[in-house]
Design a binder for these strands. Structure first.
Lengths: 251, 251
DNA sequence: CGTCCGATTGACAGCTATCAATAAGAGTGG
DNA sequence: CCACTCTTATTGATAGCTGTCAATCGGACG
């Protein structure tokens, strides 16, 4: 990951949300674009950055907090297509109409870069383009994994896999025993995985009973990383190391 | 779409495949990178460009034919995460290990650009970066749609939606009556949608019975675009117009 | 004409969604 | 500090969609 200067100074601030305090997820400064954000915006949990179908003319960088992107069908069915963590960038290369909405899971702070500034910054900074392409490629890899989960894994596999994936993204799953803030409700997990909340609840109960993890009040504790990995299915497990490279996948 | 020069001259060539002749899908030259492909590679239907887990050091541009990207779980479950059509680019910004495999659906012709050439071309051509970001963003939008389908739509909705989506991608779904080459087997549709081939077959049979479409020998004919759209679910239907902009989505 | 692979169709099981009821927490007001 | 309320989490019972298993059909090919 290319180190970037923190130009908003929000990276390590402590914030509070409904469901208890959520500490800064990453201890290092959140990676940011090398472009001066001309605006900031702070969202409380549950508020929307924009809605599905909104027209946007800016690029958004999440400095602090968690959010998610979702699509809704007209009858209310919702699919969470991605979780947004500090350092993630939205609105790059998109048409003017966003096909998805973005909602805050915790209080979160966004940097806003007008499309125009963004484009000029792109021309001036040769490394920025490569960095963005990398980020989009990583997001794509996540999307593909997610698709594989939703399409081909059982409910229990999906839940295990998602929790592992998120734990990795906050870079905390390197040791066998992990406890991290994960400000999700069951409905978020369900909507991300194409499951009913009841099903998610049952899966989590199973995992708790098996002493593999605990999940309470927006906090995940992994007690048995090995066991969780086995349930999630060993393939594709070693994705997303910090340096962006991929480890070998079992053929 | 930014017009690009065709530097391999393959864009309009006629090719044949197993399941009958497949005409060039787009009448205009396939959009290509403005970088000289240093190699070409032709794949027959069923052959792999690379396998899941392979290490690659190149960027691939599909000039002609159809292919798909997929992930497999160790027990053989397969998820097709994207279909690759002429003009699509693979391997940008990815780590060295591909998380997915790529297999040809028809005979197809690839341009190969070594990573190094690609990176230098990126520096020299300012528009290329924006174009690539756009393409990745579009692929991401497709992936999100697909995820929503797999996660939240019924089998029949998924099938209808996928066929419509593909029909749009080949730019042929503008008139009410469409007939296009769509070199897919039921297993491809099933693996893309997280369905069993039998289920896909039943859905297609329903659609045929309702005189909404025919699907035989790698050829799709849409008899009732309206009806198909209704079944697919009206939301998100108007995505992917040619100019890359998005039409209004019903709130 | 025989073989093979993919498409169909039918029967049945199983995983999940749905519906319903209750428990558990968090926030509010007295 | 306690009662009240609202939201979310749990748990149980049941229905339904879709997967799996089997058998047959059909077209392509040798």
């Amino acid at each position: 990951m290319i180190p970037m200067t923190s130009n908003l100074g929000l990276a390590t601030r402590q914030i509070s949300v409904n469901r208890g305090p959520v500490r800064t997820v990453r201890s290092d400064p959140a990676p940011e674009l090398g472009i001066q954000a001309s605006q900031r915006r702070v969202l409380k949990a549950g508020e929307s950055l924009f809605m599905q179908g909104d027209e946007i003319r800016s690029v958004y960088v999440l400095h602090e907090g968690w959010a998610f992107r979702y699509q809704c069908l007209e009858d209310g069915r919702r699919q969470i297509v991605d979780f947004v963590l500090p350092g993630d960038v939205l609105g790059v290369g998109a048409g003017s109409q966003m096909l998805y909405g973005v909602e805050a899971l915790t209080t979160c702070a966004w940097g806003i870069v007008p499309q125009q500034n963004f484009m000029s910054g792109l021309r001036e900074q040769p490394t920025l383009c490569a960095k963005l392409l990398d980020m989009l490629a990583q997001a794509q890899a996540r999307a593909f994994d997610q698709m594989t989960s939703v399409g081909r894994r059982t409910a229990r596999e999906r839940v295990s896999h998602l929790l592992l994936d998120l734990a990795r993204r906050v870079r905390a799953a390197d040791c066998a025993h992990v406890e991290i803030a994960m400000p999700l409700m069951l409905s978020h997990i369900g909507d991300a995985l194409g499951l009913a909340t009841e099903t998610v609840c049952r899966c989590l109960s199973d995992l708790k009973r098996a002493k593999i993890l605990t999940f309470t009040a927006g906090r995940l504790e992994i007690l048995d990383l090995e066991g969780l990995s086995v349930i999630a299915g060993s393939t594709l497990e070693e994705a997303y190391p910090e340096d962006g490279s991929r480890r070998r996948i079992a053929a």
